[in-house]
Amino acid sequence: MNSLSVMIVDDSATTVQKLSSIMETLGHRIAGTCDTGKKAFEEYSRLEPDLVTMDITMPDMDGITATREILSAHPDALIVMVTSHGQRQVVIDAVEAGAKNYILKPFNRTKVEEAIEKVREKYPSL
């Protein structure tokens, strides 16, 4: 299975750390992390990762807007939302906007793996 380069967008250092370690155990590479939506857009253009995990609530630009911005410039971007149960409607908006999948908090290795595998099934080029 190919290793993916993953960019993690989350303002919680704990979540970033947990996601990074799970991604690494799954054999993926962390291309970069950032803690605001605005930076996410800039970083995406620079790093061009295979996959982005996107938090929903962040300072300066929320995850949905960041997702929309990234997708308008890079329509092929594969973005997976990271969210909690209470934010389902927001995730639906994000998926409608073009996010490919979502990971519900609290997550574990299995959940993350499943979410990525589902995207891989849909986009075999990954």
Binding site: R88, Q89, V91, I92, V95, E96, K100, N101, Y102, K122
Partner: peptide, 20 residues
């Protein structure tokens, strides 16, 4: 959401939204 879903042609997207 459901109205949009009924017109959605991408099965994967439809499935993802249904799960939400």
């Amino acid at each position: 959401t459901v109205c949009n879903l009924l017109h959605e042609t991408d099965d994967f997207k439809q499935e993802t939204i249904i799960s939400l």
